[in-house]
Amino acid sequence: NNDALSPAIRRLLAEHNLDASAIKGTGVGGRLTREDVEKWLAKA
């Protein structure tokens, strides 16, 4: 759900042209964290 994304995470996803639904969030309530996105980028 994009409503649950912080502005910083939205920007990070946009910079790398990523789809938030492709990344499993580990934050509160399954929210994406910066670490989630960075780990996903490291694997890609």
Rank of each mutant, 00 (worst) to 15 (best):
N1K: 13
N1R: 11
N1Y: 01
N2M: 13
N2A: 12
N2D: 14
N2Q: 13
N2V: 12
N2L: 14
D3G: 11
D3R: 10
D3H: 10
A4R: 13
A4Q: 14
L5H: 06
L5R: 03
S6M: 06
S6R: 05
S6T: 13
P7A: 12
P7S: 11
A8E: 15
A8Q: 11
A8S: 11
I9Q: 03
I9M: 09
I9R: 01
I9E: 04
I9P: 00
R10I: 15
R10N: 06
R11N: 10
R11W: 08
R11P: 00
R11D: 10
R11F: 06
L12G: 01
L12K: 05
L13H: 00
L13K: 00
L13W: 01
L13I: 07
A14K: 12
A14H: 09
A14V: 09
E15D: 12
E15G: 06
H16F: 06
H16R: 02
H16A: 04
N17H: 12
N17P: 03
N17G: 15
N17Q: 09
N17M: 08
L18N: 03
L18W: 08
L18F: 10
L18E: 04
D19A: 06
D19G: 05
D19V: 09
A20W: 09
A20S: 09
A20K: 06
S21T: 11
S21G: 10
S21H: 09
S21P: 04
S21M: 09
S21E: 10
A22G: 09
A22D: 13
A22R: 11
A22W: 14
A22S: 13
I23D: 00
I23A: 02
K24I: 14
K24Q: 13
K24T: 12
K24H: 11
K24P: 13
G25P: 06
G25Q: 02
G25W: 01
T26G: 03
T26N: 05
T26W: 02
G27T: 03
G27F: 02
G27D: 03
G27V: 02
V28N: 08
G29Q: 07
G29A: 08
G29N: 14
G29W: 02
G29Y: 02
G30L: 00
G30Y: 00
G30W: 00
L32T: 04
L32F: 04
T33N: 03
T33H: 01
T33F: 00
T33P: 00
R34M: 15
R34I: 15
R34N: 11
R34L: 15
E35G: 08
E35V: 07
E35I: 07
E35K: 09
D36E: 03
D36I: 01
V37E: 01
E38D: 11
E38M: 14
K39D: 15
K39L: 10
K39I: 08
K39A: 13
W40Q: 15
W40C: 06
L41V: 07
A42Q: 14
A42L: 08
A42S: 13
K43D: 14
K43E: 15
A44S: 11
